[in-house]
Design a protein around this nucleic acid. Structure first.
Lengths: 249, 249
DNA sequence: CGCGTCGTTGAAGCCGCTCAATAGATGTGG
DNA sequence: CCACATCTATTGAGCGGCTTCAACGACGCG
């Protein structure tokens, strides 16, 4: 290897959707090799975010959408009286910022829950490229459509379900998404605090904590701080209100 | 007028986005006259729906999106145990069915709350046309982005707000949207039942009714069945939790 | 070690739900 | 036209799930 250390670092940040194991979940899905190279040419991979760093904030000028490559990011709105409502937690392969297209300004804030890497996709160039690559345009519609679907699932979650159903649905949803990424569906680390879970689900931190304890007493799960093990996935499914747990937001 | 009665009826259903007073709110927004004609060529205007008619149902094959021209439509999901969660009420100028693109199947049901007319826009032809008309493609992104934004507002509504805040936010939202359509912002007819309002807001019919009564006692509104008059819009705004009420779902 | 943050658990209170009764609106058939 | 049934909406009484308030333990960091 003749590359100097310096050069190597630059190489590390060069984009290669072709080699990215998330390609099938992300924007490149369904593109041919040649088209993939065109798409890569407009994508920039930036220095990873540290825990607590902002990806974008409410009011920021919108110029690009972002694809999470690793880590976890929370997206939230801040109300006039200062407190926040978390709208979703985003894992690798998911696109952020699509809701900012209309107003050309970000309407939410995105913050890294842990060290997270991401790709930046300038929107105006993406739009141009969609005109050239119908497959890419179709994938954009699909991804936006999917986000609409998952938002609808969230509405159902908040509107109809009890606290216990909310928490179990949340766990199963997370489990499903992690499994899709190749991780264990039954053993993982929660990237967010109880506070953040409660906020997302429209519950208090105490209620979340109590329900975790209750699920643990029933031997459905086992929790050590943020490390969680699902010991009876079927039982959890049954608590979700019959269906569901496959939403992706 | 030389047209026979027969001919006149056919003419009535011919599309003309150019003459549609909703054009600036709907898909044609921002298109030049020539491009508008191209768009019109793929749009079909169908016979109006009667109250209780379905526009589409969960599981239906997705082949087109729909634009409401008049009336009001509710969109809901049905849970496995049979009851429904209403996701939104749609007024003229709004697009329906965008959340079905990904799965190529409708994931919700859309039902007319009153006599409603609409346009049908075949999606595959729309996609082709977006490749030819960058302005149209941009408008599609904007409209989908806006729906994502309004879904987020709904999440905030369901997650953070009290029953009173939910109901007042709902009223102000409706008032704002009707005003945008050229109707009175302070006097209108609710196209949905108390039951449906409660379902949408995650409340029972009794709670909705009580809050309407309370708002009436405070002289903020005046209700006669479905006919509603807002007598103190500012007071309602203050009840919303400081901000908000500008979501469009 | 001391401090702050996070999470757990208990006790009490309140908001919204459930159950129930009633009235008004709507529709139907005689 | 009225009698009757049905559906929607309103209002009250009581209950329960979740929140609020509070105390305490565990962990991380200076």
């Amino acid at each position: 290897m003749k590359l100097s250390h310096q050069t190597f670092n630059i190489e590390k940040f060069k984009v290669s959707c072709a080699n990215c194991n998330l390609a099938e979940l992300c924007l490149p899905r369904g593109l041919e090799k040649g088209d993939l190279e065109k798409l890569e040419s407009i994508i920039k991979r930036a220095k990873p975010l540290q825990r607590g760093d902002y990806l974008f904030r409410t009011g920021d000028h919108f110029h690009a959408i972002y694809a999470i490559r690793s880590g976890a990011v929370k997206v939230y709105k801040t109300t006039s009286d200062g407190d926040e409502q978390i709208l979703g937690f985003h894992l690798p392969g998911e696109l952020l910022g699509l809701d900012a297209i209309e107003k050309k300004k970000h309407v939410c804030t995105a913050l890294a829950l842990e060290t997270s890497s991401y790709c930046t996709i300038p929107f105006s160039r993406l739009e141009e490229m969609c005109n050239l690559l119908p497959g890419l345009q179709n994938q954009m519609y699909r991804l936006m459509s999917r986000e609409l679907s998952t938002d609808n699932e969230s509405l159902l979650l908040l509107g109809k379900k009890s606290a216990e159903e909310k928490v179990t649905t949340f766990l199963i949803n997370l489990s499903t998404r992690l499994h899709l990424l190749g991780y264990s569906a039954t053993e993982f680390r929660l990237p967010m605090s109880r506070q953040e879970i409660g906020n997302y689900l429209g519950l208090t931190i105490e209620t979340v904590s109590r329900i975790f304890s209750r699920l643990q007493n029933k031997k459905y799960i086992s929790i050590d701080h943020k490390q969680i093990q699902i010991t009876d996935l079927d039982a959890l499914h049954n608590l979700c209100g019959g269906r569901n747990g496959n939403q992706i937001t």
